[in-house]
Every structure is written in structure tokens, then in C-alpha cells.
């Protein structure tokens, strides 16, 4: 009996090896290790906070002296106006803007991108420490915090959930379906009818886009999250779903069977999801994330859902998504023409 179990186990391992499952076994721990290292590194970096101060606004002398004295901890950017501060915050070039608190005399207000972020905590801790050094006891200098992102934690995490749905359908569901059609020779059967490669490809892209839009709509219905700019939101979602559906179909074409397609899908899914979703908690991930195609969808989603931005502010992002999607569709078309791995 033990012998049989061993033989079967070895056979299962051989199948796992053939299906490239072993790649996942190696890839996931490696990916997690690299990501965690980047996040940990970011905590050390977070020791130095980057704040913006308005040029025309005079803060208390004691505050200014302490900020100047703490140059190892605080990096100051002088701002011409509040709009510049908002822009630099959105571009992640500064962590917060310190202004006079109009509602409480002799105290400061902090403007940040997100209320619950390590940047906000770092600024609050640093200013609290500076105040303790300067005055000993007494109330904190910062008595108010305003966030550019609207809504609570649920809304804050919404762009990540939407991105997750888009990538899940694009990289897990679609490649499997394409690989299945190839594996069972269904695609070849379809191509014996008057339909051509382009029509099949368009149908697959439409399927991906439809699944994504339905999933996102369902998410919104459940959570009752209403975007402010509906047209802009739908437009960027369509561009994103087109891009990642095309990407998924292309991945499906690179695989001979469903198991390989799933493995390859996960290998793309995780790196594209996590750095974008975690970029707010790590400056290093913030630097890497823009290099990933998923970031060109994540950023506009964040801007529209949390910062009330419109599509005109993100021309590069949607053009990028459409160009990348078109390129992937073209590659798939070429592989279909060559009857690649069919």
C-alpha cells in the first residue's frame, strides 16, 4: 500500500512539474519575500517625513525653529499656494501640508492624502515629539487633520478591490478559458466556420470586459459606492478591462493547457496587484508601482473614486491602457494565425 501511495505521489509531483505548478511554489515565496523587504525598508525610510509649508503663511516662531532644527527628520518643501500642495500630495512628492488651523488659535492643521496611512502617523508622531522637546507638556501643535481622499476606509480600499476584480478576470479566468478552447480543439472547430481570428478575439475581449463590468457593478451595488464622475469612471474601467482582457487572452495563447494558464496567470496576477495595492504603505513600492501596467489603472481609479478627479487629468493612463491592450490583441492575433500550440 505504501509503495502505491509513493508511486502515485511521485506521479502527482511529475504532473505538477509538467503543469508548471512548481513555478508557483518557487515564485510565490520569492515574491512575498521581495515585497515584504520593500515594505520593511519603507518603514525605515518613513523616519524622515516630507512636509509642505505655504510661503505666504507665517507659522509660530517656535514651530519654525524646531522644524529647522529637525532637518534630519523633516524635509520641507516651500509651496506657492495650497493647490501646489494638493498636487504634490497626489503625486506622492510630499507626505503632508502643514497650515495654520483657522478653527483653533495657535495650532496647526495637517492636510494629507489619506487619513489612515503610515505617512500621517509619521507626521503626527514627529510633530508630537518636536512639541514635547520644545514645550515639555501642553497640547499638540497639530489639532486638525484633513484628507484629500473622500470617504472612509471602505471607500479608501475600493480602488484596490476593483483592481483585484479586473486582474482576477483578466489573468485567472480568461487565460484558462482560452487555453481550454485550445486544448479541446474547440477554437480550431470554430475557425472552420466563416468566423475569422479577429472576430473570435473580439468576442473574447468583449467577454472579459462584460465579466469585469458586471463584477464591478455588483460590487458597487453591494457597497453602494457611487462615483462622482460616472462617465469618467466607466470610461477608465472600460479601458482597463480591455487592456487586461487582451493581456489575459494573450497569456492563454502562450499555454498549451488550463493548468499552465492558471499558473502563468497567478505569476502575473500577484505582482500586478500587490505593488499597486500596497504602494501607499511603502515609498519603494511607490517608486516601482508606476512601472507596472496595473498602476495605470489603479491611479486613475484612486483619483476618480477618492480625489474627485476627471478623465482629462489622466490622458496618459487611458491611452497607455488602450495601446497596451491593442498590442496584446495583435500578438494574440499573430499567434492564432500561426496556430500556436493548437
Amino acid at each position: 500500500m505504501i509503495r502505491n501511495v509513493l508511486i502515485l505521489t511521485v506521479n502527482d509531483l511529475a504532473i505538477a512539474f509538467k503543469n508548471k505548478t512548481f513555478l508557483l511554489i518557487l515564485f510565490i515565496p520569492l515574491f512575498v519575500f521581495v515585497t515584504l523587504n520593500l515594505v520593511d525598508q519603507a518603514v525605515v525610510d518613513a523616519g524622515k517625513i516630507r512636509i509642505g509649508l505655504l510661503q505666504q503663511e507665517t507659522l509660530a516662531t517656535e514651530v519654525m525653529q524646531n522644524i529647522s532644527a529637525a532637518e534630519q527628520l523633516v524635509e520641507v518643501t516651500w509651496l506657492e499656494n495650497p493647490e501646489e500642495g494638493n498636487r504634490l500630495l497626489k503625486e506622492r512628492q510630499i507626505d503632508g501640508v502643514i497650515i495654520r488651523n483657522e478653527e483653533a488659535a495657535d495650532s496647526l492643521a495637517l492636510i494629507v492624502l489619506k487619513m489612515d496611512s503610515i505617512q500621517t502617523i509619521a507626521i503626527m508622531q514627529t510633530f508630537s515629539a518636536l512639541q514635547k522637546v520644545a514645550e515639555g507638556a501642553g497640547p499638540d501643535w497639530i489639532t486638525g487633520i484633513n484628507s484629500l481622499h473622500e470617504g472612509g476606509v471602505q471607500r479608501e480600499t475600493l480602488p484596490t478591490w476593483v483592481l483585484m476584480l479586473v486582474l482576477l478576470i483578466g489573468f485567472i479566468i480568461l487565460p484558462s478559458q482560452v487555453a481550454e478552447e485550445k486544448e479541446k480543439k474547440l477554437l480550431l472547430a470554430l475557425l472552420q466556420t466563416p468566423i475569422n481570428e479577429a472576430q473570435w478575439l473580439i468576442a473574447k475581449l468583449l467577454l472579459g470586459m462584460l465579466l469585469i463590468m458586471t463584477a464591478v457593478l455588483f460590487l458597487h451595488l453591494l457597497g453602494q459606492f457611487g462615483p462622482v464622475h460616472l462617465f469618467d469612471y466607466v470610461a477608465i474601467l472600460l479601458a482597463g478591462s480591455f487592456c487586461f482582457s487582451a493581456f489575459g487572452v494573450f497569456l492563454g495563447f502562450l499555454c498549451r493547457n488550463q493548468a499552465s494558464a492558471r499558473t502563468l496567470g497567478v505569476i502575473f496576477y500577484l505582482p500586478l496587484l500587490l505593488p499597486s495595492a500596497m504602494s501607499d504603505v511603502s515609498q519603494q513600492l511607490t517608486a516601482i508601482a508606476p512601472l507596472l501596467p496595473s498602476y495605470q489603472l489603479y491611479r486613475p481609479l484612486q483619483s476618480i473614486l477618492l480625489e474627485n478627479a476627471s478623465l482629462t487629468d489622466m490622458t496618459f493612463d487611458w491611452i497607455y491602457l488602450i495601446v497596451l491592450g491593442s498590442l496584446m490583441s495583435y500578438f494574440s492575433y499573430l499567434l492564432m494565425k500561426r496556430r500556436w500550440l493548437m
Partner: peptide, 15 residues
């Protein structure tokens, strides 16, 4: 297209 019908060894239908 439509002039040749190819029937593979393993039936390829939507199971």
C-alpha cells in the same frame, strides 16, 4: 471556408 470539413480523431465539441 466551408469547402472543407475536417473531423479530428478526438471529437471536439462543447461538452
Amino acid at each position: 471556408v466551408g469547402k472543407v470539413g475536417f473531423i479530428p480523431e478526438v471529437p471536439n465539441l462543447f461538452d
